[in-house]
Design a protein around this nucleic acid. Structure first.
Lengths: 121, 121
DNA sequence: CTGAATCCCTTAAGATACTG
DNA sequence: CAGTATCTTAAGGGATTCAG
């Protein structure tokens, strides 16, 4: 278990504080899916975020759990089944993630609308 | 100039689209400061984000300019003076960044309030 | 199915030195 | 002041294998 690296930033900067929590490569995406599904499983998340490897998904979940954003419940049935859901604290991130989601979807429309001069990507 | 790496994600996910733009290690912080100051300079940003090296700052600015978020203006005086400001498109990110900022500041208060059981960090 | 551990290559990013 | 170039080290992250 590696010690968490830190944005050793200007002490007060609130944006950096938020980044501290959600800056992981897939964290905000994971949170986004948990906001929508309320409860989910490892395999479900993997299917929803195919570009994130199993290893990465596990690591990101670990950190989110350590930060109290996500709660993990183990159902020791066979085959093993676990559930993930946002904690009450994690749910306070909803406005942040949803702001990202709304911006992203209008951005997507904008991109497909006038990709005439947006050759890249 | 390296080609930009891409979140080759599920095609539609809006959060991943947003990350595509603001996921750089310091990008959202830079945008945040530009939202507040409206116009700024290289050295000013460096002083505001001391944990970000000069090289990193330059790289992040490059990408933000390439993504049309930021506009750079060069004033060829001596000594050289450049200005950075958000583009109209960049300003559309304001809700996202400000959501992060507000979450971060309440998080900061929460942290300092009950750091009794939050020994780490 | 849900992970943790190892191996190993790729990328990120600090330090330093140099240009306009 | 505002960057760029190079070099080196540390961290990120995929593939595979093992465990509960």
């Amino acid at each position: 278990m590696t010690i968490r690296k830190v944005y050793d930033c200007a002490p007060g900067c609130p944006v950096e504080s938020t980044l501290q929590i959600i800056a992981g490569k897939w964290k905000s995406v994971i949170i986004y899916h948990l906001i929508q599904d309320h409860i989910s499983h490892f395999g479900t998340l993997q299917r929803q975020i195919p570009a994130c490897s199993r290893r990465m998904l596990a690591l990101q979940l670990q950190e989110l759990i350590a930060d109290q954003i996500i709660v993990k419940t183990i159902d020791p049935a066979t085959p093993l089944k676990t559930t993930y859901q946002l904690s009450a604290f994690g749910k306070t991130l909803t406005p942040v993630i949803m702001a990202m989601a709304t911006w992203g979807s209008t951005y997507n429309q904008h991109q497909t609308a006038d990709d005439s001069h947006q050759s890249k990507r």
